[in-house]
Design a protein around this nucleic acid. Sequence first.
DNA 1: CTAGGGGTAAAT
DNA 2: ATTTACCCCTAG
Length: 301
Amino acid sequence: MGAPKQKWTPEEEAALKAGVLKHGAGKWRTILKDQEFSGVLYLRSNVDLKDKWRNMSVMANGWGSREKARLALKRMQPLPKQDETPIAPGKVVQSDEEIADAKPLPAFGSAQQTGVPKRSIVRLDNLIMEAINNLEEPGGSNKTTIATYIEEQYWAPPNFKRLLSAKLKFLTANGKLIKMKRKYRIGPPPSALVDKRRSPSMLLLDGRPRAPPKVDKDEITVLTKAQIDLELAKMRNMTPEEAAAAAAQAVAEAEAAIAEAEEAAREAEAAEADAEAAQAFAEAAMKTLKGRNPQGMMARA
DNA sequence: CTAGGGGTAAAT
DNA sequence: ATTTACCCCTAG
């Protein structure tokens, strides 16, 4: 709120965040050259991207290296003589908001960077995508691998595995992820979707009578990366009260997903059938696509 | 080219 | 008057 010089538009911020999510923090030039973002960021330089990302990260985590220096220069609040209670590193008090659906996950330690990574708020969705992208396993990554990746590089709340399961299921249901047997891979972009018509194997996909995982040609529930980023951009400007309310809503959403996942887990048969159907669909898709490679995320600079 | 420090105009 | 957010400069 303090610098209408050439203020960054939400679109620019979203593009920047999407770029960082895609290429990783620090690859400013790569992001700038990416056709996906150059349209929005063509006015900005790589340094601008870096600076903006710094500001956003500082806001997210609170204590960037820069804030520290600036605060050190000044003087802290006249703390009362009350002796401080050092927080044990491993026993951080977890408020509701911190574990709230694992949405405020500190992330971004760029695998090739130092051990003290910058941190920012990302949705679990994006973290999953990041994990799959970085793992770069040919056939996709299974849930355990993804969980291990995230847990080792970042921290995870106690109920993280449940949340991850629910999220993976949800993302698979709406097409953002494709599940083959036990492995997940990034779903194809809407433009590269197999077909508007549903193939026989497509019908097999939702053979589960109970769950209605929207198989309509209109994908109303599919969120694109840009939409998620816009969502995050909006949250940036929220007051604490609004953010708390949004977090509460997200929690409710996650709880619903968890309930669904647990219900599915109770019926292992259905889950197995679902997995097999997914495999059948994937094979059919492969044949349909023939030589075409559904991977649209490999960008060699 | 990137990371970080510093300056400064604008907003509270 | 303090904080915020953009931009510039410089070292690695």
